[in-house]
Design a binder for these strands. Sequence first.
DNA 1: TGTACATCAGTGAACGCGCGTTCACTGATGTAC
DNA 2: TGTACATCAGTGAACGCGCGTTCACTGATGTAC
Lengths: 214, 214
Amino acid sequence: MTGVTRPYHHGNLREALVRAAADLAREQGPGGVVLREVARRTGVSHNAAYRHFADRDALLAQVALDGMARLADHMRAAVDQVDGPDPVVVARRRLSATGRAYVEFALTEPGFFAVAFADVAQELMSATIASPAPGDRADADPYALLNLALDDLVAVGAVTPARREGAEVACWAAVHGFAQLHLGPLKGVSARERATHLEAMLEVIESGLVQAPG
Amino acid sequence: MTGVTRPYHHGNLREALVRAAADLAREQGPGGVVLREVARRTGVSHNAAYRHFADRDALLAQVALDGMARLADHMRAAVDQVDGPDPVVVARRRLSATGRAYVEFALTEPGFFAVAFADVAQELMSATIASPAPGDRADADPYALLNLALDDLVAVGAVTPARREGAEVACWAAVHGFAQLHLGPLKGVSARERATHLEAMLEVIESGLVQAPG
DNA sequence: TGTACATCAGTGAACGCGCGTTCACTGATGTAC
DNA sequence: TGTACATCAGTGAACGCGCGTTCACTGATGTAC
């Protein structure tokens, strides 16, 4: 009972391992998530993880699932915060809110983001997209949230059904690429400039979607 | 002189190693580029690569450099092919041509693409972007090619200087994200649908850039 | 044209390392009586 | 309230493996004379 020695039981090892794995993924990429290093960082013996995960892949899968859920939470919270009297304005602001939230999450939690979009979760994602949410809690899925925002824009008459087609891919691609570039080659760009560029991009897309072909 | 036995000297080993490394990167990601496997695939002993590259990093750097050069070549060829009487139409088509070429290259050569945008080439890229091409062959740099296309749109009066600001990031993000998604979660999308979605996205961006804010 | 020799491009064995995973184990906790 | 015991969460040693890299080497090529 010195208070200095760590207790034998960690108490929250599973969660701590996921967190450490995400941190490692941020630094080294998903391929660099090494079970022994994850254990090291959690201050636990190198095989303790096997009490909580079948193997390395199971840990990575959990990181991917957590990441996707966190991303969806962040996006949903951002959308829910937008309100106002004009339904067109609300719909437009909700779309840009999803995009902003997406980029924010990717830059804040690059580890979760990287793992969620690597190897493991791919088949899972593909399946989700192929048969989009049959009623059951579509709000847990980032992709579904984006589609809801776009459908709203059509419902309020801001976007024509013709322009709606493929718009989800265009929007997703833009914010995904924006995040990837600012985690990679544009890493050095200041937060201020990054924010300006993000708003400019969201504005371009919004204009492009809302207006008739030029 | 049986004609069956491979000659002792490969003749083109350096290039073959780069090619094999790119193939491996396509399958396993940049982290999965393993010197011994590269040698195996090239049909050469596992240490033969050391006659041509100082170490694994040097090989990866070469893949990144080659990838960037190939991408730039592909984009430049696409731009050069666009011509016509109306300078506004030409400028617009040249912009979309750069984007189309970017995506085409990424999907055709995902190995080169992945390595070029991972670890190694990052500092190199950042430097290039920070001090953009001081006169010397800007046409070898994909980023510079994009900026040229956007500057042209301003020059012909299709895009206002205000909208020009940050446009290079928006365009790059969109095509980069589009490529990444179709190499990852949207892997299963048919070539036909992918092409439709790409055109829709390029159209949205073009509209958004050209028109006044809606 | 022929030959000695330097140089270049490959080979095979060996190194040390960190990895994922398994094993038999120990310390801590919770529960039945 | 006390105690035996099952269960759970961790440990440390050991395994086999593939890796990057180095070493001393050999086969092929080119060049000076």
